[in-house]
Amino acid sequence: MIRIPCPFCGERDHSEFHYGGDGSITYPALDAPTEDWLNAVYQRKNIRGVQIETWHHVNGCRMWLLVERDTITHEIHLVRAAHDGVDGVLKGRT
Protein backbone atom coordinates (compact mmCIF):
# COMPACT_ATOMS: atom_id res chain seq x y z
CA MET A 1 0.00 0.00 0.00
CA ILE A 2 1.25 3.48 -0.84
CA ARG A 3 1.32 5.85 2.12
CA ILE A 4 1.40 9.54 1.32
CA PRO A 5 2.60 12.11 3.83
CA CYS A 6 0.03 14.88 3.33
CA PRO A 7 1.59 18.20 4.37
CA PHE A 8 -1.70 19.10 6.08
CA CYS A 9 -2.81 15.80 7.64
CA GLY A 10 0.29 13.64 8.02
CA GLU A 11 0.97 10.18 6.56
CA ARG A 12 -2.18 8.53 5.23
CA ASP A 13 -3.13 5.45 3.16
CA HIS A 14 -3.46 6.00 -0.56
CA SER A 15 -7.10 4.91 -0.30
CA GLU A 16 -7.84 8.35 1.21
CA PHE A 17 -6.51 9.97 -1.95
CA HIS A 18 -7.72 10.26 -5.49
CA TYR A 19 -5.06 10.02 -8.17
CA GLY A 20 -5.09 13.05 -10.44
CA GLY A 21 -2.57 12.66 -13.20
CA ASP A 22 0.72 13.87 -14.59
CA GLY A 23 1.84 16.71 -12.35
CA SER A 24 4.41 18.02 -14.79
CA ILE A 25 1.86 19.25 -17.31
CA THR A 26 1.31 22.95 -17.76
CA TYR A 27 -2.13 23.34 -19.27
CA PRO A 28 -2.24 25.74 -22.22
CA ALA A 29 -4.39 28.85 -22.41
CA LEU A 30 -8.07 28.19 -23.09
CA ASP A 31 -7.67 29.56 -26.62
CA ALA A 32 -4.30 27.92 -27.33
CA PRO A 33 -3.80 26.01 -30.60
CA THR A 34 -5.36 22.53 -30.89
CA GLU A 35 -1.90 20.95 -31.04
CA ASP A 36 -1.05 22.32 -27.59
CA TRP A 37 -4.26 20.98 -26.11
CA LEU A 38 -3.78 17.57 -27.72
CA ASN A 39 -0.32 17.37 -26.20
CA ALA A 40 -1.52 18.45 -22.78
CA VAL A 41 -4.49 16.08 -22.68
CA TYR A 42 -3.21 12.98 -24.44
CA GLN A 43 0.59 12.84 -24.59
CA ARG A 44 2.07 11.15 -21.53
CA LYS A 45 5.54 9.86 -20.81
CA ASN A 46 5.60 6.35 -19.45
CA ILE A 47 8.27 6.96 -16.87
CA ARG A 48 10.18 4.14 -15.24
CA GLY A 49 11.47 5.86 -12.15
CA VAL A 50 10.53 9.03 -10.35
CA GLN A 51 7.65 11.00 -11.78
CA ILE A 52 5.65 13.93 -10.53
CA GLU A 53 1.95 13.36 -10.04
CA THR A 54 -1.07 15.17 -8.69
CA TRP A 55 -3.05 13.53 -5.90
CA HIS A 56 -6.17 14.86 -4.22
CA HIS A 57 -6.65 14.21 -0.51
CA VAL A 58 -10.29 13.68 -1.27
CA ASN A 59 -11.20 11.84 1.94
CA GLY A 60 -9.11 14.17 4.05
CA CYS A 61 -8.29 17.86 3.77
CA ARG A 62 -9.34 17.97 0.06
CA MET A 63 -6.10 19.64 -0.90
CA TRP A 64 -4.46 18.85 -4.24
CA LEU A 65 -0.87 17.74 -3.82
CA LEU A 66 2.17 17.38 -6.04
CA VAL A 67 3.77 14.03 -5.30
CA GLU A 68 7.05 12.62 -6.55
CA ARG A 69 6.61 8.86 -6.80
CA ASP A 70 8.94 6.15 -8.00
CA THR A 71 6.94 4.04 -10.43
CA ILE A 72 9.11 0.99 -9.74
CA THR A 73 9.08 0.94 -5.96
CA HIS A 74 6.13 3.24 -5.12
CA GLU A 75 8.54 5.18 -2.96
CA ILE A 76 7.29 8.71 -2.30
CA HIS A 77 10.06 11.30 -2.47
CA LEU A 78 8.40 14.68 -2.11
CA VAL A 79 4.95 15.94 -1.32
CA ARG A 80 3.84 19.56 -1.43
CA ALA A 81 0.63 21.54 -1.83
CA ALA A 82 -0.05 21.98 -5.53
CA HIS A 83 -1.14 25.58 -4.93
CA ASP A 84 1.99 27.72 -4.87
CA GLY A 85 0.56 30.28 -2.48
CA VAL A 86 -0.60 27.66 -0.01
CA ASP A 87 2.73 25.87 -0.28
CA GLY A 88 4.46 29.17 0.46
CA VAL A 89 2.37 29.82 3.56
CA LEU A 90 3.04 26.28 4.74
CA LYS A 91 6.78 26.75 4.36
CA GLY A 92 6.76 30.22 5.89
CA ARG A 93 7.72 31.96 2.67
CA THR A 94 4.99 34.58 2.95
Binding site: G20, H56, V58, M63, A82, H83, V86
Partner: peptide, 13 residues
Protein backbone atom coordinates in the same frame (compact mmCIF):
# COMPACT_ATOMS: atom_id res chain seq x y z
CA UNK B 1 -16.56 19.20 -6.80
CA UNK B 2 -13.18 17.45 -7.26
CA UNK B 3 -12.84 19.08 -10.68
CA UNK B 4 -13.45 22.60 -9.37
CA UNK B 5 -10.94 22.06 -6.56
CA UNK B 6 -8.35 20.83 -9.05
CA UNK B 7 -8.83 23.82 -11.32
CA UNK B 8 -8.55 26.31 -8.47
CA UNK B 9 -5.62 24.67 -6.68
CA UNK B 10 -3.57 23.27 -9.54
CA UNK B 11 -4.40 25.08 -12.75
CA UNK B 12 -5.54 28.56 -11.85
CA UNK B 13 -4.01 29.31 -8.42
Amino acid sequence: MVWLEELLQVRWP
